[in-house]
Computed example of a mutant assay.
Amino acid sequence: MEAVQTLSLVEIARAKLHHLPDGRFKNPWLPYEAPKLAKIIKWKLSHLIVKETPHIPIVKPTKDLLTSTQGPLVCFLGHDTVFVRLEGFNFLFDPIFGNIGGIVKRHTLPPLLPEELPEIDFVLYSHAHRDHLDLPSFRKIPGNPCVVAPLNTSLYIRHESLIELDWFETYEIDTFAITAVPLQHWSKRNLTDTNFALWAGFILKSRGFTLFFGGDTGYFFGFEEIGKLFGPFDLALLPAGAYLPRELMAPFHLSPEEAVKAACELKTRFAMPIHWGAYKLGDEALDDPPKKFKKCALNSELKALISYPGEVVSFEGKAPLFLTPQLSF
């Protein structure tokens, strides 16, 4: 692992050091491949009774509003689910609209049900965890979208138009490109399938707009390199929730402060915190991540774009423009 520390992300990916001989994947720069199951179980058992009272308001956009422009247009739908319209195409990141696995309760209703969305052209999955790749939600998405996901996602989803990408591979079509980039995370859906599918972030690039989608990740050295290779970005969507307790979450989940640091290293004009508000996956309050993200951003040069679920933001002009009534923290 010491030799890996001297390599760039591109060199690591080119040498396929994140591939294991048995077909699984790893973060080559970390001494372990996933959180210890015993620690997760112990933490979960201490949280069998969860009281969560914060009310998170939502905005209900219309289908017509989401397609009112050719884009760029962004609508945060809660947790890691984000609708993006770009060059007249509709993208949906990590769509989940109900309970996780039918078990973990959703505390904040989604602004829209999947069947209320416009037809989706592309669904992008960052990894196979059930709060990101939700099969019941996928089956209800209108249209016949192309699915773009990291390697081996086909273990969990069968779809005629599934594009699987390794780190730094790119899928190009028409006027935009989708590139998968390394993140520091892991993958699992069942008891014995740890890391048999890869995880990744995505860069969505068109002629006049470049977006970074952070999926799920801990803080690592790669943000600075990704910023140098692909930046500056117009917008970075960065996970900032499920970050407590730090002794358990730190390797694989950004804190709001780390998300701001990552955004600065990515060299993005604006950054939006995601991965919050819908599910009680960490010890922090549901509405804590965007508040801390905004406060930390004020102490840096980062322009934070804080959006409640369902607010629609257009990037057609020089500055973001809210097309729905704007709620403020």
Rank of each mutant, 00 (worst) to 15 (best):
E169I: 03
S154C: 06
N195D: 05
D193I: 05
A180M: 05
P150I: 09
S154D: 12
W186A: 02
E160Q: 10
C146G: 00
E160L: 07
T175M: 08
D193V: 07
A197G: 13
A200P: 01
F168T: 00
A180L: 00
T175S: 12
N190A: 14
E160I: 10
F196D: 04
T175E: 15
S154G: 13
S187Q: 00
L183A: 03
S187V: 01
E164Y: 15
S187F: 01
V147P: 00
A200S: 15
A180N: 04
E172T: 13
L155H: 12
V147H: 05
C146H: 03
R189E: 11
W186V: 01
W186P: 06
V147Y: 05
L183S: 03
A149Y: 02
V181L: 03
I157K: 01
V148M: 06
R158A: 15
L183D: 04
I173G: 03
L162W: 10
N190C: 11
A180R: 02
P182H: 02
N195Y: 01
R189D: 07
L183E: 08
W167Q: 10
V148Q: 04
S161C: 11
E172W: 07
T179A: 11
D174F: 08
N195G: 07
N190E: 15
N190I: 10
V181F: 03
I157S: 08
R189L: 10
I178A: 08
F196I: 10
R189Q: 11
L165E: 13
T192D: 13
P182C: 04
E172R: 15
I178T: 12
R189P: 07
R158E: 12
H159L: 03
